[in-house]
Design a protein around this nucleic acid. Sequence first.
DNA 1: CTGAAAGCGCTTACAG
DNA 2: CTGAAAGCGCTTACAG
Lengths: 337, 337
Amino acid sequence: MAVTIKDIAKRANVATSTVSRVIQDSPKISEATKARVRREMKALGYEPNYSAQSLANRMTQSLGIIMPEADVAIFQNPFFLESIRGISDLTNEKNYTMALVTGKTDEELLSRVKTMRRANRVDGFIVLYSKPDDPIVDFLHNEKIAYTVIGKPQQYVSETTHVDNDNYQAGKDVVCYLMELGHKHIAYVGADLERTVHKERVRGYRQALEEAGMTVNPHYIFGSEFTDDDISELFRLQPPPTAIVVGDDMIAMSLQRALHRIGIRMPEACSLISFNNLILADMMNPPLTSVDIDIFKLGYQAAKSLIEKIQDPEEVTKHIIIPHRIVERASCSRIEE
Amino acid sequence: MAVTIKDIAKRANVATSTVSRVIQDSPKISEATKARVRREMKALGYEPNYSAQSLANRMTQSLGIIMPEADVAIFQNPFFLESIRGISDLTNEKNYTMALVTGKTDEELLSRVKTMRRANRVDGFIVLYSKPDDPIVDFLHNEKIAYTVIGKPQQYVSETTHVDNDNYQAGKDVVCYLMELGHKHIAYVGADLERTVHKERVRGYRQALEEAGMTVNPHYIFGSEFTDDDISELFRLQPPPTAIVVGDDMIAMSLQRALHRIGIRMPEACSLISFNNLILADMMNPPLTSVDIDIFKLGYQAAKSLIEKIQDPEEVTKHIIIPHRIVERASCSRIEE
DNA sequence: CTGAAAGCGCTTACAG
DNA sequence: CTGAAAGCGCTTACAG
C-alpha cells in the first residue's frame, strides 16, 4: 500500500489536516512544522494521491486536448504532435495530465467531450483547431467550461482566450517577400477556406496584392485538393504565375510533386513559399522556404493560459499572438525584369 | 452540482450500493431493478464521477504513454502521433484516458513516470520505443507496474507483453524484393543500431544477402546521420550500390535530397526502399516504395493488451506481431543484366 | 498556528 | 437480489 497523509501525520506528530496544508504550502503553517513534515514526506517518498485530491477539491489537474475529426492525413500532419509537445512541456511542469480526445466525426467528438465533462475527468479543454459553426465550441461555451483555442476562434471571439499567429499578416508578408524577389504573378494553392487559419492567410495574400495595386485573379486561387490537370491549367493562364503561396508544408509537398510531373521545375520556373516550417520543409528538395509559426509555443501558451483560467476563473480573456518569421531556403528564386 | 449516485438512488428507490452495482452491470442485480435505475440515470444525465471511482477501487482508467526522450526531429516523426491515434481509438472506446509522458532526458522521463505512479495517476504504461538498458523499463519491471512496449523489448523480453512487427523479416523481404528486380549491390542507410527496430531490420538485411550467397560489405552500411560526402563516398566504392534500403521514410527524405545534391538520380541511378509507409512516402518525388507496418494497429493492440493486463493481472504475457507489406511505388527500378 | 470532524462520490465486504 | 455501513485519501470550514 502506498504512503498516505496519515503515515506522514503520525511520523511528524501532527494532524492530517496539517499535512494537507503543508502539501498546499499554506501560509498558515509555521516554517518549523513545514520542515518537519516535509522531511517525513521525503523520507517515505510520499506523493499525494491524485484521485483523492480531485475528489476532495473537485480539480482533476487534467486538460482535455481536442483534435479535429480525424482522418489519417490530418493525424500525420506533424503540426498536431508538435503543438501537443508544447502543451506537454507545460503540463509536465505544472503536474497536469492531458487527455487526448479524438473522434471520427464531430458527433463522436462531442459525445466524448460531454462524457469527460460529466465524469469530471478534466478541468478544461484546449481546442487544437478552429472552424466555423463548431458544435463542440458551442457546447463548451454554453456550459461555461474553461477552454482555449489554438487558432482564431470563429465563435464567441472576444470572450474566448486563444493563442494564434497573425496569419493575415503572415499572408501579406509572404506576398511582399515574393514581390521583392520580382514576382508579379503569384498564385495561391491550399486555400482551404473552411479552416480559419487558411482563410486568414488567403485574406492577407489578397490584401497585399491589392495594396501593391494588382488585381487578384480568382483563377489563381486553389483549394488543397487538386489534380495535375488543375495545376497544368493554372500555368496555361495568361500570364502564368511565377510563384505560388502554399497553405502549408504538407500541401507544398503534394504540389511540388504535381509540378514535377507536369514538368515545371522549382524554383527555376516557379517559386514556392509555404507556412508552418515543419521539419519536412528542410528535407524537401530543394528545401522549402516556409513561415515558421512556432507551433511548440502555440501549444505551450495555450496550456499556460488555460491553466491560469482554471486556477482563477476571474482571469481575463487573452488573445495571444505568437510571432512568425520567414525561414529562407531554396524554393524561391529572383526574377529579373 | 453534478448528478450523483445518491440522486439516482433516491429517485429509483434503491440503495446507493445498488446503483453502484448497476453501473458495473453486476449479475447480482435483477433486470427489473437495472432497468429502473438506468432509466433514472438516463433521465438525469448521470455520469459516474471518475475521481471517486478511482479512489474507491484504485483504478484510474488512465494509461501513461511514454515517448522517447524528445528532440524536435523525433516529435515531428508522424510515427508517434499515428501510434497514439491507434491507442486513442481504443482508450476512447473503453473509456480510458491517456497521459502523455515526455521529457528531455531519460532522467526527466523517469522522474515523471515515478511521480505519476506514486500519485496513482495511471494504471499502466505503454512504452512507445525500445532501446537497450532503458532505466525506465527497469523501473517499471522492478516495481511490477503493468506495461507494454511497442517494438521488441531489450530487457525482460519473455516476460513483457509487446506489440511489434517482424522487422527482421521485413528487412529480409525488402532485400529479396530488390534482388528480384535484379539488384546485387544493396546498401543500407539509417542503421541506427541503438534503436531495436533498426537493429532488427539490419539483421534481416544481412541475413537475406547471406542467404543469397553474397558477402555483406561493411562499407555499405551507414547510420542515420550522414553528410553528402558520406554518400558520395558510398557511390565511389567498387562496385557502387544500385539500391539502398533506408531505415525509415524520414531518413529516406534526407537521403533523397543528398542523392539529388550529388547528382544521383532516383530511381534511375539508384533505387530506394524504406519502412513505415508514412503519408510522406506517397508525397515524395518520385513516391517512395515503403513497407507498411500498420502503425495504427501497433498502437491499438498495445493499448488493448495493456488494458487486458490491468483488468486481469493473471493475463498471460503476449507477443503480438502485426503483419507488414511492401507498398510499391516508383522509387525502385528494374536492373537488366 | 493547529486539530477534530465532516464530506467529496464512489465501492465492497458483510449480513440478510 | 438488496441494503447499511465502513472505507478509499484527501480538503476545508469551524473551533480554539
